[in-house]
Design a protein around this nucleic acid. Structure first.
Lengths: 388, 388
DNA sequence: GAGTTATGTTTATGTCCACAACATTTACTC
DNA sequence: GAGTAAATGTTGTGGACATAAACATAACTC
């Protein structure tokens, strides 16, 4: 009789490990995979054969050699295996078609003139998917990952509160699955940004990373602990913008006083630089090239507050890397030494040693890669269950 | 030929899972273990036989029955398997002999009249161990776990900074191993307290827990995430006492201004209650029974600050339980509603729902159980490597 | 005492992987 | 250009482990 149980579990774990390696590190030879996983070469032959059989991988002739030894075909992930990334924002809905090989095949941006409802976003999404029908037919779409600017009940696929979109307690995953026939996973946008930075960005390979992103609507955060995204009990973790760091009556978007988000705002910086919202992309250059005196004062004050928040994070989490995105990256570039001093003044010495504060890679594509990563997760966890 | 590799790994994982279940949940029958692990009954028979063979478990006759079905011998962890817990504090060194079955067999408290050096603590420890030689000969000591009131490089077994003991960059694990011949593991005391609360205390079974302990020397913290102790990059994580929450010139023990520890102190509470340090154990009752007006004001202010810090932790980590120990538990008992309101004012609504703020169990024994748990970890991870 | 229920035990079977020996293909050396 | 070293792929064998199924055992129920 069939012996399921453990043998299957072992196989699943090994297939998962191999596919993950290919996903994270890119193409490599079987021998390299065998060493990385600690399996035997003959075992790896069988595992790769399985992945090829499942339509998830393929072997190609090796490129240039230069080393002795028998040349080894290179195992690639099949680029037709894709996920759809969805990112609803205030001004536009962005959809991306992202391959398991990491390529962003297509980005579609659909601007709207007013903030959309959930129903409208769902409708636009399914319209775009309908338009892509021919393209998708030639591919293998494993799921949809959604980056939501707000707090998300990840397990249930429900948007609890996305203040800038005005969404509260809106089921999202279930209706989108209904419309698309695809599995849908949701997460907070900054959390996915953190994950993408950790996996593919400036914090690559760092197992303990904190990501802070500053945008028009506030400050979002995401935390990677031991290589995994920190979700907390319900998936709401990482809201570093809303921690109180000072005694101040200023309120943030959630109505909390004295928080990082209330004290460090892009709007104030833009105003001090004489820019308006529409020219926000010039903030970084304006700040670096002879900014007016008032802007200097604002930037210095904001850096001090940013330092306090980062210090709190360092004391609590003892991370290796703090990645700053959006206008927080501009603040960092403006005076990294000042930020370092402010952080040093509010951290315990052992905790802060070795911590690097770096700008995030921050290409908009990275967020799509993060959302797609969310959709790829079930496939990476159990490749064998994705038989065609 | 021998097939090591995977088969061994599977066995190791299964043995580990079974021993962990016994350690955490206490004695249970084989059938229960089989269901809990998802293994087959015949597999469990073999696994339990291995544990018995290794001298780690034993089967005893079932107690009262009352249910139909064949009576099942109950699998117990062998109580002779023990670890030694060590906790150096300012006023005394506490050693505990803790069984794998959870019983605290013996507690030895050695008071000193001045703060000891590392060498003195090591010397006292080995003296106590020498005195216990006969007792220990009948047992099986798997290691020593040390709870240090300060920041610890867990991997290296080095105390980086224990301000109240005046220790800086002191190797501890290596010399104690040298003296005792036993493996030694170090961790921060509050971190071990958090772990013990999560495993055996008031936060039992909660996978996301934050522990805050208030003592004479300040406020320590520990964080449990997804059932595991959060160490961070080097093991320094959890220093919640040192996060800045207000604009205040008050400095804490690390010289940082406006932190939880600088604003919420036992000394100030005691002074307002007209007590001195030596009567600290009466703080809780004094606070609950008609305290003088100034003490009320102090308690209210401290509760507000405590609320800000807890709120920051909730926003960042989205935990299920906040366990408060020491005088923080007294503050909680004094006015739980006020604390709730302060927390609510500084948290995002979704994150705070379902969070319970509870007093920690806080028996001094729990810390010893935590330190012993640290020492048991290698055994629980790979029981087969502990063949006699 | 017959039936029910829950558990322990025995035996046969299947899966997966490691290992070892051999095959293949390249680069390097003289 | 022949021989050697290095790296990898391939094949067959064996072993460890876990499952499944049938049977055995010991309580409870009526």
């Amino acid at each position: 009789m069939a012996s399921r149980g453990t043998a299957e579990e072992v196989r699943r774990a090994n297939l998962s490990a191999v596919l993950r390696l290919l996903y994270v590190n890119g193409p490599s030879s079987r021998a390299v995979l065998a060493r990385a996983t600690g399996r035997n070469r003959s075992t790896m032959a069988s595992l790769v054969a399985d992945l090829v059989e499942l339509g998830l991988a393929e072997e190609r002739d090796p490129a240039a050699l230069g080393v002795a030894g028998r040349p080894s075909p290179v195992v690639h992930v099949r680029p037709e295996v894709v996920a759809i990334a969805v990112n609803p924002e205030i001004d536009a809905l962005t959809l991306g078609l992202v391959g398991l090989d990491g390529t962003v095949r297509r980005v579609i941006r659909h601007a709207y003139d007013r903030i959309p409802s959930v129903a409208e976003v769902l409708s636009i999404t399914s319209a775009v998917l309908a338009g892509m029908e021919v393209e998708l037919a030639a591919l293998r779409v494993v799921g949809i990952g959604v980056a939501v600017p707000g707090q998300v009940q990840t397990a249930e696929g429900v948007v609890r509160n996305a203040p800038h979109l005005g969404w509260r307690d809106e089921p999202f995953a279930a209706p989108l699955t209904e419309l698309s026939g695809l599995p849908v996973a949701l997460a907070n946008d900054a959390a996915l940004g953190a994950w993408a930075e950790h996996r593919f960005g400036s914090g690559r390979g760092q197992d303990h990373l904190v990501y802070l992103n500053g945008g028009a609507s506030g400050i979002g955060g995401g935390v990677i602990i031991a290589g995994a995204l920190l979700g907390g009990t319900s998936g709401y973790a990482g809201e570093i913008g809303h921690i109180r760091i000072a005694s101040s009556p200023a309120l943030d978007s959630a109505g909390i006083a004295g928080t990082l988000e209330s004290l460090v705002t892009r709007a104030e910086l833009l105003a001090a630089l004489g820019l308006d919202e529409s020219s926000a992309d010039r903030l970084a250059t304006a700040l670096l090239h002879t900014p007016p005196q008032p802007a200097l004062a604002v930037a210095h004050r904001q850096l001090a507050h940013l330092g306090s928040a980062i210090a709190a994070v360092i004391n609590i989490l003892n991370p290796q890397v703090i990645a700053l995105g959006g206008f927080l990256a501009a603040l960092l570039a403006f005076d990294p030494d000042l930020l370092d001093r402010e952080v040093a003044a509010a951290t315990l010495a052992p905790s802060r040693e070795g911590v690097r504060i770096v700008p995030a890679d921050l290409s908009d594509r990275l967020l799509l890669v993060g959302a797609a990563g969310l959709a790829f997760e079930p496939l990476l966890r159990d490749p064998a269950s994705f038989a065609r």
